[in-house]
């Protein structure tokens, strides 16, 4: 039979294709519905957080940092509660990473703060002597791309029904709403308001000035994102 196939390229190719498709059909498709449900307390990203997430991706922080806490005591001691599937419901793409050159960041918002990130991103060794993480000084001057972040909010809302402007139940039973503005100008103003709160906790004068002018340096967006990781 195999020799027969080897003389008939078409059937051979069909045979190969069926053999390799098999696993995907059985393993992947059936689980999609189950996996996609958000856990209680999981909110979509705000505009500024999303802009920060883009900075994280642009600079491939995921090359060194994971965002997945495995259910081992040593990991929950170091990073906090193990990850649950529904916590990632709004992560497009997922950012689990595959290498921990640096520590996991899944819940870094719980135990690092704006001022610490400011010091650390500017010069990692200033807070962690011996760190091999690169300094990201350019983020203190380069401006974040707010419009693309807004574009993504609109897109995931339209295409994937990500619940902006809807009450979301938090763990304590209260509800919160993440706003998606009608226009980009309005969205910009929202992001700026969020950025001002962060800049207030920062020391870098250039960053503070930029935010006053209405520009948001990448570092502010990135910190908004890092603080949202809880």
């Amino acid at each position: 039979m195999f020799h027969w196939l080897e003389q008939r390229p078409f059937f051979f190719a069909v045979g190969v294709f069926l053999t390799v498709s098999f696993a995907g059909l059985i393993e992947i498709l059936p689980n999609f519905a189950e996996q996609a449900r958000p856990t209680v307390g999981t909110k979509p990203y705000s505009g500024l957080e999303l802009a920060g997430r883009h900075v994280y991706i642009e600079d491939s922080c995921n090359a060194c940092h994971s965002q997945l806490i495995r259910p081992f005591k040593n990991e929950t001691d170091r990073y906090g509660m193990y990850s649950l599937s529904g916590e990632y419901a709004y992560d497009r793409p997922f950012l689990w990473g595959s290498k921990r050159t640096g520590p996991d960041l899944m819940r870094v918002g719980n135990y690092r703060t704006t001022d610490w990130h400011e010091n650390h991103m500017f010069e990692p060794t200033s807070v962690v002597p011996g760190s091999i993480m690169p300094a990201y000084k350019h983020m203190f001057s380069k401006v974040a791309d707010l419009e693309t972040a807004y574009a993504e909010m609109v897109t995931v809302n339209k295409v994937f029904n990500v619940p902006y402007n809807q009450p979301i139940t938090m763990k304590d039973g209260s509800t919160e709403t993440v706003k998606l503005a009608e226009t980009f100008d309005e969205a910009r103003a929202d992001m700026l308001a969020e950025a001002k709160l962060i800049a207030a906790d920062m020391k870098n004068q250039d960053v503070k000035d930029a935010v006053e002018r209405g520009e948001i340096p990448q570092i502010v967006a990135l910190i908004a994102y890092l603080n949202s990781l809880k």
């Binding site: 996609a36 990632y88 419901a89 497009r92 997922f94 791309d145 693309t148 807004y150 574009a151 993504e152």
Partner: peptide
């Protein structure tokens, strides 16, 4: 995203899959 929203970088896109599903496909 630019095609859907009319905003932002034209080359930017967002994955069809989210979270654990995205990881699975990845």
């Amino acid at each position: 995203t630019a095609i859907v929203s009319g905003h932002g970088d034209w080359f930017h896109s967002v994955s069809w899959y989210a979270g654990t599903n995205d990881a699975l496909v990845q």
